[in-house]
């Protein structure tokens, strides 16, 4: 399932990036971190997640008010975490689970 793998990898990358932004603080995030965000956005565009990309545009817009950017980032955090949870639930089915090592 390459499409699902792409989505999973993109979500994992997003979670990792968001965690780093949260650790550093959006107001202190430097250009390298913001550039990574733009790269992640480009991948999302390719995967067809336009609403997420719009949120990311606002979060990365250095001209926008900081509180609006923070709210957009929080929405993004919620979106990515929800998507990862649903992906995890999809993998919970006993039929699809790999056997444990003996």
């Amino acid at each position: 399932m390459p499409e699902q793998d792409n989505l999973q990898a993109w979500l994992d990358a997003g979670q990792h990036w968001l965690a780093r932004v949260q650790a550093a603080g959006l107001s202190c995030a430097g250009h390298p971190l913001l550039a990574e965000g733009h790269a992640w956005r480009a991948q999302g565009e390719l995967l067809g997640w336009a609403p997420v990309c719009r949120l990311l545009d606002l979060a990365l817009d250095e001209q926008a008010a900081l509180s609006s950017r923070a709210r957009a980032l929080l929405d993004l955090v919620a979106w990515v975490a929800t998507a990862r949870r649903l992906e995890a639930v999809a993998g919970l089915s006993p039929e699809t689970a790999p056997p444990a090592s003996r």
């Binding site: 949260q22 603080g25 923070a70 929080l74």
Partner: peptide
């Protein structure tokens, strides 16, 4: 709560 969360995101968990 919303103000507190916004402040948390802006300052960062480390800050």
């Amino acid at each position: 709560l919303e103000d507190w969360l916004v402040a948390l995101v802006l300052q960062g968990c480390a800050g």
